[in-house]
């Protein structure tokens, strides 16, 4: 029955990867909205690239967190 603990680890790691989908949606949302705004007002687009990258970094960081949770479950628990 010690396999049960391991089962839990693997299941948890797999479930944690679902979080990456959320990050994907988030990054896509940021980039898509930026593109929509940039096409509407191209002159303002260049000044907002920094904001774009910050937004993408924040969204992406959450996906990395879920990846980290998966790694921790696999290796560190």
């Amino acid at each position: 029955m010690e396999n049960l603990g391991q089962l839990g680890q693997y299941l948890g790691a797999g479930l944690a990867c679902i979080g990456m989908a959320g990050a994907a949606v988030g990054v896509g949302n940021v980039a898509g909205n930026y593109l929509a705004g940039a096409l509407r007002n191209p002159s303002a687009a260049a000044s907002q690239t920094a904001t774009l990258f910050i937004g993408m970094a924040f969204a992406e960081a959450l996906g990395i967190f879920s990846f980290l949770v998966a790694l921790l479950l696999l290796f560190a628990v």
Partner: peptide
């Protein structure tokens, strides 16, 4: 925390 894990996580992944 997020600042460091973002960088390490991206490169590691």
């Amino acid at each position: 925390v997020s600042h460091s894990i973002r960088l390490a996580g991206n490169i590691m992944a």
